[in-house]
Amino acid sequence: MKKTMLAIAATLVCTTSAFAQSSVQISGISDIFVGSMKAAGDDGRTNVVNSGGLTTSWFGFSGSEDLGGGLKANFQLTSFLQTDDGTQGRFTGDTFFSRDANVSLSGGFGSVLLGRWMAPNFLPSVVANPLGDSFVFSPLILHMNVPLFNRTGWQSTTPSDTGWSNQLVYSTPDIGGFKANLQYQFGEQSGDNKNKKNVGANFFYFGGPLTVTGFYERAQISNPGAGSYLGTTKTAWMLGGAYDFKMVKPYLSYGQSEADDTDVKAKTLQVGASVPLGAGSVIGSWAQTKLSGVDLNRKTLTVGYDYNLSKRTDVYAMVMNDKITSYNSGTSFGVGIRHRF
């Protein structure tokens, strides 16, 4: 009996130890706003209750297992969500886990990841502007990533989505505040397109009040999902940064993008600032994109206030003006709430 009890106790200790080495988390962001929207070139105004005013809503699972010796196995399965009506994805036809679907190994060497993850362009553009990853109100993100389905025909300057599927990523360890990612997306094409692929890299330096970031991409494959050949080779790069003076945090970024089947080059400059005020911040950003070879110039300005109700919940109010050469301008505004869980 004594031996049996000892065996059971040993089993329980081992089981507890195994669970202690693994963790799984459910997390996400729910962001919804009330607004009146009119982009440059729109014929009329649209009053909305929409999802993702400051951050695209998402939910999902992530976890890690301690393999010993400083080595960990990690996974991410996260999906975008339209909080206003419960629709999955960012748009019709978006894959279910279009935000993240990957497995990685990490340790003192950095990490190696396989699957769907951020494209090189995404995080640097988020870090380099005060409105972060707002696909509704951030001028930089709008110019880079959001086409206008109106008579302007405005196209995003990002080569191939903000996330890449079927990719291999090597991330360096943190070296004195510096980190970098090297990314390769397998095209998974056959025949004449068998060598088509996406490659890119980005870097980040966080040194006290100073932030510096940048990316380069060369894309031939579309996203999300399995993807297909774009029919051209698109390249893009950007450099950006910020400096926190405590009283004000200014932001600056500049980038270019082009495709080999056209002489048009997009050149995007963005300046912005965040000023602490009370329990929140006044934030503002201005972006200008000039298209060389054609007489087309887009300028977008957003100013707003983001107030923290708690560490996980904030409310915000934003006003945005959008102009494109030869088209009527548009002004949008929205008031929303964002909750992290």
Rank of each mutant, 00 (worst) to 15 (best):
Q220Y: 03
S156A: 15
G293W: 05
L252W: 01
Q220F: 09
D43G: 11
G108D: 09
G304F: 04
D161S: 15
K179I: 05
D85Y: 13
P139Q: 05
K311Q: 09
A9T: 10
L182V: 15
D42R: 00
F245A: 10
I29T: 12
N145D: 10
L168I: 14
D94S: 06
L54E: 11
W117E: 06
L131Q: 12
N223L: 08
T313P: 06
N121D: 11
D43Y: 02
M320W: 01
G191A: 13
I221V: 14
T232N: 14
A226M: 05
T302F: 03
N121E: 08
A40G: 13
F96N: 05
N223F: 08
T268G: 09
N166D: 14
T325Y: 04
I141E: 08
F341M: 11
Q220M: 15
G278P: 13
K38T: 06
V112R: 00
S30K: 00
L113F: 00
G41V: 06
W286L: 14
S228M: 04
A119Q: 01
P276R: 04
A201W: 07
A201E: 03
L114T: 00
K234H: 07
D322G: 12
D192G: 08
K311A: 15
I324S: 03
A9D: 02
I337E: 05
Q167F: 07
K197H: 13
D161K: 02
L12Q: 08
K179D: 04
I324G: 05
Y216Q: 02
G255I: 10
A128Y: 02
T232S: 13
S23M: 09
G334F: 03
F80G: 07
K299H: 10
S292D: 15
T56M: 10
I337Y: 10
T172W: 04
S30R: 03
T152W: 08
M320K: 10
G68Q: 07
V48E: 14
N74Q: 13
G334A: 10
A226W: 01
G200R: 02
S222W: 04
F96G: 02
S190C: 01
D31R: 00
L81V: 13
M5L: 15
V127D: 12
T158E: 07
M318T: 05
